[in-house]
C-alpha cells in the first residue's frame, strides 16, 4: 500500500491579504485521504494549531526553511484514539488536566443555548483553566468553535446515554473579546 502524497497548503498569501486561514486549514484537513499528511507553509510557527490538530489525530513535525518560512507536516497517527470511551476529537490525556474551576449544568436547555453558555464562560477563563459541563446530548456544533478558539476538549456520553459530559481546557481568554 502506498502512502498518498502530502497535501500542501501555503497560507502565506492568505495571511498577507489579512485573512484568517483557519477555515482553509480545516477544510484541507477534511479533504485528506486516509493516511495522507498535510504540509502547511506559514510565515510563523503556528503553535496554537498543534493542539487542534492533535485533537484530530495528527502528529506534528516542523522545521524552519532557509527562506524563513515554517514548514509543518501534520501526519495522521495510526491509532490516534485515545482513552477508550472518549468521543472522537477528544484530546488525549485529558485525565491529567487540573480539576475544573467552572462547572455548568446545561441539562434541559434547548440548543444552541448550551453552546452560548459554554463559550461565554470560556471567554472569561485563563489559559489552562478547566470547565466541566453536563449536557443532554453531544454538542456537535460547539466543537469546531472550540477548535477555532484554541480550546481543547474531551467528552463522552454517560453510560445510560442520557447525558453528555464535557471537559474543556481553556486556551486562554479570547483575544477578540469586545467588552462593552
Amino acid at each position: 500500500m502506498t502512502t498518498p502524497c502530502p497535501l500542501e497548503l501555503d497560507v502565506r498569501p492568505q495571511l498577507a491579504r489579512g485573512e484568517e486561514p483557519f477555515a482553509a486549514i480545516m477544510e484541507a484537513t477534511d479533504r485528506l485521504q486516509p493516511g495522507q499528511s498535510l504540509r502547511l507553509i506559514a510565515p510563523f510557527r503556528p503553535a496554537p494549531l498543534f493542539s487542534v490538530m492533535a485533537n484530530r489525530g495528527f502528529g506534528v513535525s516542523d522545521r524552519r526553511r532557509p527562506d524563513g518560512a515554517w514548514e509543518v507536516v501534520f501526519a495522521p497517527l495510526e491509532d490516534a484514539v485515545l482513552d477508550p470511551g472518549l468521543a472522537p476529537g477528544s484530546t488525549p490525556g485529558a485525565a491529567l488536566w487540573p480539576d475544573p474551576s467552572h462547572v455548568l449544568d446545561l441539562a434541559g436547555l434547548m440548543p444552541p443555548e448550551p453552546m452560548v453558555r459554554i463559550l461565554e464562560t470560556l471567554a472569561g477563563m485563563q489559559a489552562g483553566e478547566v470547565l466541566f459541563a453536563l449536557l443532554d446530548r453531544e454538542p456537535m456544533f460547539l466543537f469546531p468553535e472550540l477548535a477555532q478558539r484554541g480550546h481543547e476538549w474531551a467528552g463522552n456520553l454517560a453510560p445510560d446515554g442520557m447525558s453528555y459530559r464535557l471537559l474543556i481546557r481553556s486556551g486562554g481568554p479570547d483575544r477578540a473579546v469586545h467588552h462593552g
Partner: peptide, 8 residues
C-alpha cells in the same frame, strides 16, 4: 484559499 493549495 483553495487556489493556494495543491498536492505535491
Amino acid at each position: 484559499s483553495s487556489s493556494d493549495d495543491h498536492a505535491l
